[in-house]
Simulated assay, not measured.
Amino acid sequence: MPRRFLQRYMPRPDTLSRQRSLRFMAPLIADPALWVLSRRSVANAFSVGLFCAMLPIPFQMVVAALGAKWSRCNLALSVGLVWITNPLTMPLFFFGNYRLGAWLLDTPPREAPSRVSTQWIAEQMTDIMPALLLGSVATALLLAVAANVGIRLIWRWHVSRHWKRRRLKRQQRREHIESEFDD
C-alpha cells in the first residue's frame, strides 16, 4: 500500500480531537502510535476493522477503536473499515452470516416471510441468534486473516516494485553517464 496514498485520505488527529462528539476518546486519538502507517499497522487495522464490521453488535466503531489500541494498529483505518457494514449493506452481510452459521450448525435456515418486519425478527431472534453469531464470528475471522495476509502481500509487492523501478532508474543514469564519457 502506498503510504502517501493512505495519508492523503486519512483524517488528522488534531482535527478529530477538536470535535465535540469525540472528546471522550481524546486520549486514544492523541496517541501518536495509533496513527502510524506501516505494513504491520495497516494490515492489523484491516483485520480489526473487518472483524468488528462483521459482528452483529451495536457500537462497532468503539469496539474497533479499542481493538486498535489493544493491537497497536492504525486507529483511523480500523474505525473507518467498520462502515463496510452500513445501514444499506448490513442486512445483506448479516443474512449471509446467518446462512453460513445455519450451514455450520447443520440446521435448516428460517424462511423469510413475504413481508419482513421488526416484529417478525424479534419473534425469531432466539432461533436465529446462535446461527447468526456463529456465522458472524466465522466470517469475521476469515475476513480478518485474509485481509491481514492480503495487505501484507500487497504492501510487499508495492515496495518490491518501487525498489525495482529505483534500481532501473539508477542503472539508466549510470549508462547515460558512461555513454557521455565514452563520447
Rank of each mutant, 00 (worst) to 15 (best):
L104G: 01
L104E: 03
L105R: 03
L105F: 09
L105D: 02
D106M: 12
D106H: 12
T107H: 10
T107R: 15
P108N: 13
P108E: 15
P108L: 12
R110S: 15
E111Q: 15
A112M: 14
A112T: 04
A112C: 06
P113E: 00
P113Q: 00
S114Y: 11
S114N: 10
S114H: 08
S114R: 13
R115N: 13
V116M: 10
V116N: 05
S117K: 03
S117H: 10
S117I: 10
S117R: 01
S117N: 06
S117Q: 07
T118R: 09
T118L: 10
T118E: 14
T118I: 11
T118D: 13
T118Q: 08
Q119F: 09
Q119R: 12
Q119S: 13
W120V: 00
I121L: 14
I121V: 11
I121N: 04
I121K: 04
A122P: 15
A122R: 09
A122M: 12
E123Q: 07
Q124H: 05
Q124T: 00
Q124V: 03
Q124S: 09
Q124W: 03
T126Q: 13
T126G: 14
D127A: 13
D127I: 07
D127G: 14
I128S: 01
I128V: 06
M129F: 14
M129G: 08
M129K: 11
P130I: 00
A131L: 11
A131E: 08
L132R: 02
L133S: 02
L133R: 03
G135E: 00
G135D: 03
S136C: 02
V137C: 04
V137T: 02
V137H: 04
A138G: 03
A138M: 00
T139D: 02
T139A: 13
L141F: 11
L141I: 00
L142G: 01
L142I: 01
L142Y: 02
L142T: 06
L142R: 01
L142H: 01
L143F: 10
L143C: 14
A144H: 02
V145K: 02
A146R: 04
A146L: 11
A147H: 05
N148M: 12
V149W: 14
V149I: 15
G150F: 03
I151S: 08
I151N: 13
R152H: 12
R152D: 14
L153E: 07
I154E: 07
I154K: 06
I154N: 01
W155L: 05
W155I: 12
R156M: 15
W157C: 10
W157Q: 05
H158W: 08
H158M: 08
H158E: 12
V159N: 12
V159R: 10
S160P: 07
S160G: 08
S160M: 13
S160K: 07
R161G: 07
R161W: 06
H162K: 10
H162C: 11
W163Q: 09
W163I: 12
W163V: 11
W163K: 09
W163Y: 13
K164P: 14
K164D: 11
K164N: 13
R165A: 15
R165D: 09
R165W: 07
R165F: 12
